[in-house]
Design a protein around this nucleic acid. Structure first.
Lengths: 101, 101
DNA sequence: ATAACATATAAATATTCATTAATATATTAT
DNA sequence: ATAATATATTAATGAATATTTATATGTTAT
């Protein structure tokens, strides 16, 4: 793995390093969601959701589609869900192992 | 996935969100490495490596073992390498897809 | 054109984080 | 005990980031 790879992986990992962004990723993984839909579903402020969606767009993880006044976001690459799942089980295992010893 | 899960995943992902930390993770994935060994192998400053190792210890990703004046670090859970690999291929694919269209 | 609504952006703030330089702690050998 | 080496910690600094408040932009209907 060369420098370029490390940079790209770190950048993509940064997308997963915030709780609210994770929630948004999961939220847009079940088909297109409008911004207001995400706002309502997650109970976050609209500018905050917009900000995180911009970050996810920067990392190329979401697709954007306009329909009238609504803008729909959708998860592009569902492999990110496998990553989240693996990290989740890993975190649980690591914490359990620590408590055991 | 409940709140607790999001928090844990975000925390673990944060460990992967820095280039130098990724380099250190890869470095300690091939058996125990002393701090000075890592410093030499990666060309990073000693305090910087110590700091990142502390973070990796916080996230329970590394084991510590003392042997005389040396302290050895080793990757605990190699599933993290699968995650890095997936993120790497994903990043490459996403960038390629963007250039294509 | 105006009103109403959806989304984005800007400014401001607080917090986190990576890095460096300097110093402290701990271990080994003399 | 002292010197030398390995590692950790502290303080300082600058950059990045999450969040909020306020405002702007863009779209639709009247």
């Amino acid at each position: 793995m060369c420098n370029e790879h490390f940079q790209k992986v770190a950048f993509l990992a940064k997308s997963l390093s915030d709780e609210n962004r994770l929630r948004i990723i999961l939220c847009v993984s079940n088909g297109k969601k409008s911004v207001s839909g995400i706002v309502e579903e997650l109970g976050l402020s609209q500018p905050l959701v917009s900000h995180h969606l911009k970050e996810l767009k920067r990392s190329l993880l979401v697709n954007i589609e306009r329909n009238g006044p609504f803008i729909y976001y959708e998860l592009v690459d569902h492999r990110i869900l496998d990553v989240v799942k693996t990290l989740n089980t890993m975190a649980t295992d690591l914490l359990n192992a620590r408590k055991t010893f």
